[in-house]
Design a binder for these strands. Sequence first.
DNA 1: GGCGTTTATGAACGGTGTTCACAAACCACT
DNA 2: AGTGGTTTGTGAACACCGTTCATAAACGCC
Lengths: 213, 213
Amino acid sequence: MGIAERKARQRAELREQILRVARDIVVKEGFPALSMRKLADAVEYAPATLYLHFENREAIAKELCVRGFQDLLAMLEPAAQVEDPLERLPKLAEAYIRFGLEHPETYRLIFMEDPKLSTALFGDSPEGAGPRSFGVLVQVFVDLLAAGRLEEGTKPEQFAEVLWAGVHGIVALKLTCSGFPGSPAEELTQVLVSTLVKGLPGLKAEQTPTKAR
Amino acid sequence: MGIAERKARQRAELREQILRVARDIVVKEGFPALSMRKLADAVEYAPATLYLHFENREAIAKELCVRGFQDLLAMLEPAAQVEDPLERLPKLAEAYIRFGLEHPETYRLIFMEDPKLSTALFGDSPEGAGPRSFGVLVQVFVDLLAAGRLEEGTKPEQFAEVLWAGVHGIVALKLTCSGFPGSPAEELTQVLVSTLVKGLPGLKAEQTPTKAR
DNA sequence: GGCGTTTATGAACGGTGTTCACAAACCACT
DNA sequence: AGTGGTTTGTGAACACCGTTCATAAACGCC
């Protein structure tokens, strides 16, 4: 049945091309500038054809979200493999904000555009990409706990959530409030991480190595 | 010239009514649902009439931004007047996130919708509402510095920026990523503030009173 | 060659922000 | 009271938008 396979492959290829072009537009001009007509024009099909491959504009956005999030995860990967959790933490934070600043439109799409989009990553699935990458952050504090450098009885998830909120806040402000946080993002991240780490309950301070680059 | 005054007053009144109705729509259905036609319908004028009072839709949004920000400032006011900076800090943070969660659409409009909007608050003017409310946060750390509870040579603005990023991150995640940060916002704020305070460089720990509600 | 399915499209519907020529209302001045 | 100029209001239009649907073309199979 080589013929059916070819048709399936061609279909998948067109779908892929649509997504590729859509991504280009989003990256270059932002998600609001992604219109079905412009997209159809760019792939040289009629607008109605897009609806043979995606339910609607939002479905395209969701797919772009998922892929963008995978890119974010990939950027976190190297930092996630550092052994010492106290070294790992600043590296993770730095990689996160670097992704946000280097791919502003992608970051906006994932975290700041439509609540429905991020729901695709965090909401429904029990083990989607969202919770998985969150696990990377939690692991830091689990490791700290295991190493006896974090007070027993504290919840690692909570510290992970606070840290995520912190780095997200830095990126979000930088992306929207033009020039509000006067200090550069790297500096803020460094201050955030070092201060948070130093303030963790029960940390046996062994000269906290909190350099962030 | 009582007649000219009356005309000016009527003009201002209509402008005000437009803004009032626009605010209602935004609060109830979100900023994207605010269309010029719907707004014109609600104030019982033709759409074109709106353009006699505002340059365009964005001008209306900007005005709503400014007023929303004033509301935020008003909510911060009581907390800002607490004498002890170590007590003031958690109260400010709590008031901030409370505003964000109680007026989600207003908060979105101000900080998460269009970069151009927040620019009206932070960008151009040297002493707009943005920097002024930021000053409230800076003051906390200035006071801490003056009281000798913060290491000399550290920059109060930077800590204020980090704190703002932290609370903004908490609110922003809560507003977009449905149910991502599992912990309630109040808990996260408490952890954020207490951990940050404890981690401040050179704080002469006098039994940090970091209760947040 | 004829038939059924998949793929593609043009045209339309109802919506958006915005502009502009035109009309009505209004006030001031003769 | 009438006339002229300014302000205020509007209907219609333009160029977009997402989406749907009947129609048509292309394609593989018998």
